[in-house]
Design a protein around this nucleic acid. Sequence first.
DNA 1: AACTAATCAACAATCATTGTTGATAACGGC
DNA 2: GCCGTTATCAACAATGATTGTTGATTAGTT
Lengths: 163, 163
Amino acid sequence: MRSPEALAQRFREANLKVTPQRMAVFEVLGTGPGHPAAEQIHRSVVEKLPNVSLRTVYQVLRELSELGELVMLDLGTGAVRYDHNLTQHHHLVCDECGAVVDIPAHLTEVQYAGVADLGVSVSTAELVMRGTCSPCHAAGSTTAESTKPSSQPTMQQLGDPHA
Amino acid sequence: MRSPEALAQRFREANLKVTPQRMAVFEVLGTGPGHPAAEQIHRSVVEKLPNVSLRTVYQVLRELSELGELVMLDLGTGAVRYDHNLTQHHHLVCDECGAVVDIPAHLTEVQYAGVADLGVSVSTAELVMRGTCSPCHAAGSTTAESTKPSSQPTMQQLGDPHA
DNA sequence: AACTAATCAACAATCATTGTTGATAACGGC
DNA sequence: GCCGTTATCAACAATGATTGTTGATTAGTT
């Protein structure tokens, strides 16, 4: 993630104006947790700058992704997650709380050279793991409850489960 | 994918009745392409058994997935894809036509033992590749057009692009 | 044959996301 | 500091996939 100032610069270069709303989004992205959905970002933005519409947040996020400063992740969690980690990494989706955890690429080994034989060409490859995140895993191992209660956490209640 | 008869048997064992509608879905799944969305399955089902509602197809697919005979795949293509390939494999999503291609696991190498250090636990790991499928790749290499026209094919028009 | 489950049609609702519109605000080049 | 061009706003509608509902009808299974 680049600094808000760097992003502002990029926007100016792209002939996009640097408005307070956009700056607010830039700042929120830098501080917040790793993979927020648009709703969450909006909630944070409104805290510092009220009256910013959700509509505008969607807009800014889209612009950021078009500039390559952000990656839109659809991991089947119901809403798109915005990933500002620009380094090589993979993801783990927590089955219990829906959190998305970054998995540094160096902890994994992924090769798919043989795939070319199928006649396809691969531009990106991402490893999507499912399991339990660290906090949920810790909680589960001690309390040993939840056999399978969590179906799919909705975006509403998805405000940082571990806080 | 098990045979329609085998699936019927499983349904009976689960105290689920084997209706013509369900059988029709079973049969369609065996014959059709690899990763249909519910709408596509419905279209095929209606061909052999009219008056089957989309509602019912969703229902049957859900039951199949609850029995573990089917995997619901959300690859960010807009709709859930139903995967009846029960062997170890990964997926490639074609950026151009939206097709989902099976990639046999033996063509790849995926390891993530080091991930345990993060305190998380992994139950499944799937490699999601993006690129171009074989037909699109062949077409693209000769005609060399499409710089980036296809934004996101919608389900409606997504009836087997290569037929 | 009877009990129960499944299906139907027809509709409404959900949820994330994008489009629209007309009015207001404000960035940035001069 | 002015002005033209963009951005943003509120408020609303629409999309598209999916699930819920309801009351009536059909049809497996024992």
